[in-house]
Design a protein around this nucleic acid. Structure first.
Lengths: 227, 227
DNA sequence: CGTCAGGTTGAGCAGGTTCAAATCCAGTGG
DNA sequence: CCACTGGATTTGAACCTGCTCAACCTGACG
C-alpha cells in the first residue's frame, strides 16, 4: 500500500510538486480540465472494468446501469450536468455508464485524487461530501422503489425538477423506456402515469417533444409521492 | 471547522495524547470498548436526530427504517453481529435504528473517529472501506428491488446465508413482516414464497421455529434470483 | 385454560404487465 | 416537395402477479 512503490505517472507528477505545496493542483484546476465528448449510447465505462477514474458531467446526461442475465436492464442512476459519477464500492465497476445524449465528460484519475486528498483538506472534504451525497441519493431511491407506480413517477419528477436548472420546466434527457428501467416499471406504465398526471392538471406535457414537462401543481405531486 | 474550537471531551482526551503518538487509541482498542444493551424493538437512534455516532453490532441484530406518512414502514437494512451501521449522508439521521432482538451495540463517537483518522491511516482506510461497503450493499439492494417477489426472496436468502456465521443453516432474527417491509412485499407473499421454495426442495424450514432455514439447493436459489 | 403474536393458507381483487395497434415526428432518399 | 421508414409515445384489452381480507394453526405465557 506504500505510495512510492506502485504509482501512476500522474501521481508521480503530482508528487514531484509536493515540496512546493502551493503548486499542487487545486480543485478548481482539476475540474477546469478538458472534457471528453461522448455520443449518444456510447459506453463511458463498462461493468467489471477497473474503477480507476471519477467522472463529472460537464454537459449532457449519463446513465449508470447493469444488465441482468435475462436481458432486463436496470438503470441505477441518472447524472446531469454538474454531477459526479463513478463512485464504486469495489476496485471494479459494478455498473456500466453510458451517455444518454451527446455529452462532455470530465475524467479524473482516482489515484491523483487520493494523493491530493492527503495534502489538501478541501479536496478530501469534497470527496467525502460527494460520496455522502451518492449514498443519500441511493437511499432516497430505495425508498422510491418500494412504492406504487404513481408514487414512483411523482417523486421522480420532483427530483428531476429539483436537479434541473429551471424551476418548473423540466427537459428530460431520457426516454420513457429509460425512466421505466430506472423505476422498475414498463414504459407503458410510465407513459400512462404521465398522462394521468396531465389529466389531473399536475403536469403539462409540452408536445410535440414529450420530454419537456412543466410542473403545474407541485403540491399535488408531493401529496401523491409521499402518501 | 478548526479542531481546537468546538471539540467534545472525547476528542480532547484523544488530542491530549497526541504528543505521545503511540498512545492514541488504535482501532482494536476502539472496538474493544464496552457495548450498550438494547432490548427488542428499542430505538437506538431516531429519524432526524443528529448523526454524531457510528455503531457496531456486537451481538443481536438491528434494522434501520423510515416510516412513511401513511404508516407504511420501510426497512432499509438489516445489520448482524459484526456489522457497522449509522453511516449517513447528512448530519442528521435520515433513518431510525431499532434492535430486532436483545442486542449489544458498540457506540463510537464520530468526532473521535474523525480526529483519529487524520493521525492513523489504518483507521482512515477502515472508515473508507466501511463506507464503500455500505454503498455497495445499498446498490445490490436496489437491484433486488426491481425484480419479482421470488427473485427478491431468493436473493435475500442468499445474502443472509452469505452473512451468517454458519454455511447453510440460517437463523433469521427478523419476522416475515420485517422481511416484507425490507423487500417491498407483504408478509403473506414472503411466507408463500418461502413455502414455494420449500416445495421445490430449495430450502427447508426447520419448524416449529420458522425462522431457522436451511439452504438445500443453493444453485436453484441462484438461478431463481438472477434470472 | 384463554389469549396473543407469529406464521400459513385460501379466495377474490386490483394494479401493472404484456401484447397489439395507432399516432406522431425526424430523418432520408427519390 | 413528398412519400417512406424507424424510433418514440400513447392508448386499448386481456392476463397475471402480488395485495387484501379472512380463516386457521401453533407455541408461549399469564
Amino acid at each position: 500500500m506504500g505510495v512510492p512503490s506502485k504509482t501512476s505517472p500522474e501521481v508521480n507528477r503530482a508528487l514531484a510538486h509536493s515540496e512546493r505545496p502551493f503548486s499542487l493542483p487545486t480543485w478548481a484546476e482539476i475540474v477546469a480540465a478538458a472534457p471528453r465528448a461522448y455520443d449518444r449510447d456510447v459506453e463511458i465505462f463498462g461493468q467489471q472494468e477497473p474503477a480507476d477514474c471519477l467522472y463529472k458531467v460537464v454537459s449532457g446526461a449519463v446513465r449508470t446501469c447493469s444488465v441482468l442475465r435475462d436481458g432486463r436492464r436496470h438503470i441505477a442512476g441518472f447524472y446531469l450536468a454538474g454531477d459526479f459519477f463513478g463512485f464504486e464500492a469495489d476496485n471494479r465497476h459494478a455498473l456500466s455508464a453510458e451517455a444518454i445524449c451527446s455529452s462532455e465528460i470530465l475524467v479524473i484519475k482516482r489515484s491523483v485524487l487520493t494523493v491530493l486528498a492527503e495534502h489538501d483538506k478541501d479536496i478530501a472534504r469534497r470527496l467525502r461530501h460527494m460520496m455522502n451525497g451518492e449514498l443519500g441519493r441511493t437511499q432516497a431511491y430505495v425508498t422510491r422503489l418500494i412504492k406504487t407506480s404513481c408514487e414512483r413517477v411523482a417523486s421522480f419528477l420532483l427530483e428531476m425538477a429539483e436537479r434541473s436548472p429551471t424551476v418548473d420546466e423540466i427537459e428530460l434527457p431520457m426516454s420513457r423506456q429509460e425512466i421505466g428501467d430506472h423505476l422498475g416499471l414498463t414504459l407503458e406504465t410510465v407513459s400512462r402515469t404521465f398522462s394521468k398526471f396531465e389529466a389531473l392538471a399536475a403536469i403539462q406535457i409540452e408536445r410535440p417533444n414529450a420530454r419537456n414537462v412543466t410542473l403545474r401543481n407541485r403540491a399535488a405531486l408531493q401529496r401523491i409521492s409521499t402518501c
